[in-house]
Design a protein around this nucleic acid. Sequence first.
DNA 1: TTAAAATATTTTGTATACAAAAACAGAAAT
DNA 2: ATTTCTGTTTTTGTATACAAAATATTTTAA
Lengths: 205, 205
Amino acid sequence: MTKKSTQLAYIQAYEYIRDQILNGELERGTKLVEERLAEEMGISRTPVRDSIRKLEQEGLIKDKRVVNPSDSDLRDIFQVRTLLEGFAVRHCAMYMSEGDLDKLQECVKVGRSGTMEQVMTANKEFHEIIIGATNNPVMIDIFERMQSIIYLFRKTVVYHKRPLLIDEHQDIYDAIAAHDADKAEQLMKAHLQLDLEFCLQRMKG
Amino acid sequence: MTKKSTQLAYIQAYEYIRDQILNGELERGTKLVEERLAEEMGISRTPVRDSIRKLEQEGLIKDKRVVNPSDSDLRDIFQVRTLLEGFAVRHCAMYMSEGDLDKLQECVKVGRSGTMEQVMTANKEFHEIIIGATNNPVMIDIFERMQSIIYLFRKTVVYHKRPLLIDEHQDIYDAIAAHDADKAEQLMKAHLQLDLEFCLQRMKG
DNA sequence: TTAAAATATTTTGTATACAAAAACAGAAAT
DNA sequence: ATTTCTGTTTTTGTATACAAAATATTTTAA
């Protein structure tokens, strides 16, 4: 068992608020009031402020409100994301270890057969493994930041599940396994484009 | 005259510390002590802490010390930078406005004829214009963050000036002006590769 | 009734105090 | 001399108080 809980209040606060944002308990656009949150968690304002500042830097909070990305924000994020993942998947096709390949395949498998929660995690992991394989912490960090903003739409994406998503993952995996970098990149780009359109579509509702 | 000075202490502190880091008054690896800085600026610890946290997020401070990037950190940053600027320059070759093209050319011109300070600014601006032309705030933000870390080596780069740099800028400009996206991208990648190697070289000294 | 001004309330920014933790220094033991 | 322990000092994390700024509300005038 990993015991990751820190006793530090500002880390608790950070995790607490972040979770609330990501699972939708704090809706997009909600104003965050330091004192209210502090009281709610039984700590003082100071660590709450720290955590809000941090989340602001990460892009989950903007002007003391839960961020509410516009169409164009989402497009911008996906443009960068496509760039990074395009590079990463190409890297995978050329250098990926057997171990990571197996992990990728497992993600696809679980993506087909698991419970809703498992499917979600596996699909997320699929992309994380690909980015992670670059072994470039700067890249991974940028990716995770964008990921968490995209993740704001998690519920939407879950409830209105995109049907072909898992087939696209399968195809990407196949291209990687076949060491076909060009194809892998092209498939990834198409995949992300569809993801973006799906997000945009759902955002309107 | 733009009057951008904010009265807010934590912004002052942020700018103050950031400047000190970027112009080398605070050397890489220096421990930052909140109270010392607070006293130095005649304010309390609270806004100083805020600004340190912010700079930590931006990557200029790590574990309360001015960041001291390793070889591999620099490589990682340049890998991402190459990706972004490769995309951006390609975009420029296809869509750049006449106005921006002129500005780019001006940068090259000043890069040849200006004072040392002017040359430095112009060369920096050259890249900023290219990234800025994407009109993608997410991308611009990531770029600026990396830029400021690279900028830590400003002095080094100035004193040991890289001779061919400005010719490379000229070539990139020409490719953009000729709408040759492939060539522009390829030249940019080569340019950044040389820049990286120069940085790495100088880092040892 | 609506618009504007004035007032009250909330919320944030900053200073300060204190306790916990970390870093440091010196003494004792190997 | 090197390491380990002890105590001291520094530095950070957190709580709290208060003032400035921003918001909301009420009152007044048209």
